[in-house]
Design a protein around this nucleic acid. Structure first.
Length: 426
RNA sequence: GGAGAGGUGCCGGAGCCAGGUCGAACGGGCCUCCCUGCUAAGGAGGUGUGGGGGCAACCUCACCGUGGGUUCGAAUCCCACCCUCUCCGCCA
């Protein structure tokens, strides 16, 4: 969430930032109003408490000196103050709660240099790599679900029977390919990123920390009986690893890498991209995430980007990089680059990684701070993350891109060691 | 799931069923200074987080698992919940 003090000291800047997102800036005024009231009330309450404390101490002294009758008067006085204090306290708590609720619904401010725009059409294509539209042959213009069925490596029909639409099942070499991709992504980042295998079911507050709740509860699967949520991305548990902790600046940046299943209800996209692997409810993903100081953030953002991009590049896939405009930014992000891979069979660009810098937005929600080496106190740290590799769409692009005239799939060299040396599938 | 023990500051560990100046003894760690060929040992002081106010020194409130309650006053009493550990049961 945003720092209330920023809303207090520079509401215009906050309003301007929200406007760039196409968000209603009115919430800023509401926050400012409630904030003022909360502070006024708690100041009054605190003064009363101080008074009560002084009186109570006097009562204590009188009791010790056996002057109980003199204490009675003070007790009455304090009791009266107590009634008043209680009323103020209840009201202040209510307002503080309301303030928090409001703040949790306000998205992050876009970064200065984030491009303007209303939606996905305004995203800026930063670069297109390894893409030559004239280079694709007919045998590559087959959709991955056709290829998958033909080779027996993707069984959508039976997955749907057991779990419903938008669930998939990989088989044989297809399943091995899933495993190969994940392992490749983990291995490529093992030099700097600590490998984590986190829980995939988390509590509400863990989802709140990353900004996936309370605003987007329709998007996540919930296990009601135990009040747990299925994570939509490893970003959720990874961000909460050091929740409510204070790290030393010398320990930053902290880097994590995790392979998990990810679960998404895709409630807002009913009917869209329902075929094959374009959009599925459950998928494998390897995520990179870093905690860092504000000063380190630009480098870390570039680093995660370079790693995500490098894997796609080395797999020999065509891709492009988008700089998301303010209007298309996720709620918690300040700046995001998307990597979209080109899948010739479906002839579409598929988003395979969102590399985002969240400034201190998530860390403030999660209570992750660091002690600066110079100076005292603590600072909220910054978080950066991105998919090192999201399986389904990469799998799809790979199978379509590497389909040979004879219908088999050539395995890129990079993946061969992970497929027991196999050079083809099918 | 059943039975027992327990959750206190960076750590250990008092205080809690004698409720009052306890943000919390004591020890360790860490930091500064002194002493000292170096180091070790020794000596003095310091060492939490968050909110609000003040240019600042500083003042004030909250925090002893969480949330309620009792009380003039709660780390200390009462209630509920959560978590951890040990044993038993069950189980991949």
């Amino acid at each position: 969430m945003l720092d209330v003090r920023l809303i207090r000291s520079d509401p215009d800047a906050v309003r301007a930032g929200l406007a760039r997102r196409g968000e209603d800036p009115a919430s800023v005024d509401e926050v400012a109003e409630v904030d003022t009231e909360v502070r006024a009330l708690s100041a009054k309450r605190d003064a009363l408490r101080a008074e009560i404390r002084v009186i109570s101490n006097q009562v204590g002294t009188l009791f010790r000196e056996q002057r109980k009758d003199e204490a009675a008067e003070l007790q009455d006085q304090s009791r009266l103050l107590g009634t008043e204090e209680k009323a103020l306290d209840v009201r202040a708590d209510q307002l503080a709660e309301q303030l928090r609720r409001l703040l949790l619904h306000i998205p992050n401010l876009p970064a200065e240099d984030c491009p303007d725009g209303d939606g996905e059409d305004d995203n800026v294509v930063v670069r297109v790599e390894q893409y030559d539209p004239t280079s694709y042959a007919e045998h590559q213009r087959v959709e991955h679900w056709e290829i998958g069925a033909e080779l027996g490596i993707l069984d959508v029909e039976r997955a749907v029977r057991m779990s419903g639409s938008m669930f998939v099942m990989y088989r044989g070499a297809g399943a091995q390919l899933v495993r190969a991709l994940c392992q490749l992504a983990l291995d490529r980042n093992a030099d700097l990123y600590e490998e984590i295998r986190p829980p995939t079911l988390v509590r509400t507050d863990t989802m709140v920390a990353t900004g996936h709740l309370p605003k987007f509860d329709e998007e996540a699967y919930r296990i009601e009986r135990d009040d747990l949520w299925a994570i939509p991305t490893a970003e959720v548990p990874l961000t909460s690893i050091n929740r409510d902790e204070i790290l030393a600046e010398a320990d930053l940046p902290v880097r994590f890498c995790a392979h998990t299943s990810c679960f998404r209800r895709e409630a807002g996209s009913a009917g869209k991209d329902t075929r094959g692997l374009l959009r599925v409810h459950e998928f494998d993903k390897v995520e990179l995430l870093a905690y860092c100081t504000p000063a380190q953030a630009p480098d870390l953002h570039a680093e995660v980007m370079a790693r995500a991009e490098g894997t796609i590049r080395d797999l020999g896939l065509a891709y492009r990089v988008l700089d998301l405009c303010a209007g298309d930014l996720g709620g918690s992000a300040a700046r995001t680059y998307d990597i979209e891979v080109y899948a010739p069979g479906v002839d579409r660009w598929l988003e395979v990684s969102s590399v985002s810098w969240f400034s201190d937005y998530q860390a403030r929600r999660a209570g992750i701070r660091y002690k600066p080496e110079s100076g005292k106190g603590t600072e909220i740290l910054h978080t950066v993350n991105g998919s090192a590799l999201a399986v389904p769409r990469v799998w799809a692009a790979l199978v379509e891109t590497y389909r040979q005239p004879d219908g088999t799939i050539e395995v890129p060299e990079l993946l061969q060691p992970y497929l027991r040396g196999a050079t083809t599938i099918g």
